[in-house]
Design a protein around this nucleic acid. Structure first.
Lengths: 339, 339
DNA sequence: CCCCGTCCCGTGAACGTTCACGGGAACGTT
DNA sequence: AACGTTCCCGTGAACGTTCACGGGACGGGG
């Protein structure tokens, strides 16, 4: 009489084990089972143990949906990332997870595998599973709007037009200016750039570079494209030096590309920073692992992730959203061995 | 008469907007609203549009809990990772996300921040939010059992005792043996190792190294501990060379440590691989970024992640679980410039 | 004129849990 | 003996959605 028959021996064994089954098996009511499982106190010790045993015996697991329906306390946000293996996004994701955990939120992560066409599908699926979304999107704003149906969204590193969106701006103007200033101070006058390739419009970082170069009376035209990978950085550097052999310093779209350029420079026999100075963008931890360590216009990825989470939180609780000027991450030059 | 009053102007504005509100506002029934929103067909074009407008006007968003309760189709798994910023775990996580996405599952990611005491809290919270768990756990198996209450679990890189757990075994014996063999063939006889520090028991990788060294008649005692970071690898190498100056080759616990050792070797003025050969473990993409590229006993992280997801899937659908011999990832030597 | 089919829409029921309330038993107090 | 307290426990209701079913309106064919 200690326990009734266990396992799948009921009339239809495919049905889910509910709180009712446990109650019946333990000879008590639903509410008592609920009390036992949730550690409420209006219950006798022996009864509690009996219920717990019955639950274990039947393999009972409460339905998160039913529970979530009645107590509206769990919030879940979606994090959309183009490529988790890219160290930059890894850091942003880690920071976002950190901030979310501090608030007791759950984070569902989606990796769109760098395919913009995946974004819509993801959005559609996400829309019915989370309370808000944070992340990177490359598709059109109207498309975003169509698929998210009024869900709070925070876009990272991208401008927004519609009021219901929010976005974290990345301001690298001062940082890039400082980088060019530093290179000039070191005596460089022929400064090139490895820009993002495969994009319709020239990158913002390219604009910042151009402005900084012009401010120092430097020709900003020495630019080559590079695919977003270390190999891409290597090839980009070869192309740049092929077209502009006079270049003695390079600013790159990001650190991955910079690391590739660094590796290629070594292979070409050019000493860094003596014969070729390199400054990246992002300030990844990765930059400290290579030799010489990478100088970079560093972004505070921790701040980036936490700002995004903070803002989506305000949007979905209805609190005052952060003003645009607070939603800005300023990049600043961090010098190491490579420049 | 196009649309009723919008915004929060009801009697109590704090209540959630339900499908009922939309129905009332559009002058139809719940079911019709449901039809419009879910793209069912038994509905007239104009009605559908009217409902959609009303929904948008009111800012209606369906409750994922209510929906999940009635249609039992969405499955969500939890992914528990000690430190997402660690490139190895990043790769495993990315692979797991990939596999889950292919199955249409959602993945909630938890980063325990390398603190074992966080695991229990995570587990407790996770238990009521996901259908199954995949990941790394360092705490006791009984503790795991206590907090998960019969939820399917797949442990990675760790043995299990209880039947309800499943685990992915990592077999590096042959790979480490091959690594040592290769070093011996290159003429090395004084081979050291940088092991994981801060662990109660010596690591499995250490055991594999010891066995391989003995098989070649090599003293396996030249070992130093290293913290799990690049800096740790550097310090470890200094300690190892301090205690055993005769060492000409090093096998490390993992690639991060190896990269640190590589960097330190350069700083010490020892040429790699001529004066110091280095072989890591894990086979991270990171290894290709440093100079010289890192040789490593490589793990197929993609397989690792997909196996774990596959197995947790079988456990929670009740399909035949994969047998232990299929739940094994074999590491194999991948040579590059560093050895 | 009746019957049947198609198109569109609405009504009860169910999903599985927790909350608010009520109530009986045992015990002590006036 | 009547009454208040404390300790356990059970019963309706509610959460918000979808499914299964039923039914009215309309049109066409016999």
């Amino acid at each position: 009489m200690l326990c009734r028959m266990a396992e799948a021996s009921g009339p239809d064994s495919s049905r889910r084990v509910t709180i009712h089954d446990v109650a019946r098996s333990a000879g008590v009511s639903r509410q008592t089972v609920s009390r036992a499982l949730n550690g409420k106190d209006e219950i006798e010790r022996s009864t509690k143990q009996r219920v717990l045993d019955a639950a274990r015996e039947l393999g009972y697991r409460p339905s998160r949906f039913a529970r979530g329906l009645v107590r509206q306390d769990t919030t879940t946000i979606g994090l959309v990332i183009p490529d988790l293996r890219n160290p930059f996004f890894t850091e942003v994701a880690a920071s976002a997870l950190e901030s979310a955990r501090a608030r007791g939120w759950h984070v569902v992560v989606y990796d769109t595998a760098d395919r913009p066409e995946e974004e819509l599908g993801t959005l559609q699926v996400i829309g019915s599973q989370v309370d808000g979304v944070v992340g990177y999107f490359s598709c059109d704003e109207d498309e975003l709007d169509r698929w998210t149906r009024g869900m709070p969204m925070v876009l990272i590193g991208r401008e927004h037009r519609m009021a219901r969106f929010s976005s974290i701006r990345i301001d690298g103007e001062a940082g890039v200016h400082a980088a060019v200033t530093h290179l000039v101070a070191k005596g460089h006058t022929m400064i090139g750039m490895l820009d993002h390739v495969n994009r319709a419009e020239p990158s913002l970082r390219r604009d910042w570079f151009t402005a900084a170069a012009l401010a120092h009376g430097i020709d900003p035209g020495r630019v080559a494209g590079a695919a977003q990978s270390a190999d891409g950085g290597g090839e980009g550097l070869r192309a740049l030096l092929g077209a502009h052999p006079e270049v003695t310093a390079v600013f790159t779209f990001n650190d991955i590309v910079a690391v590739g350029a660094l590796r290629e420079a070594r292979r070409l026999g050019r000493r860094v920073p003596a014969e070729l100075a390199v400054i990246g963008f992002d300030g990844l931890q990765l930059g400290a692992l290579v030799e010489p360590p990478l100088s970079s216009v560093a972004l505070d990825t921790r701040l980036l992730g936490s700002l995004a989470v903070e803002q989506v939180g305000r949007l979905l609780t209805g609190a005052d959203p952060l003003p645009p000027e607070a939603l800005e991450v300023r990049a600043e030059l961090r010098l190491a061995g490579s420049a």
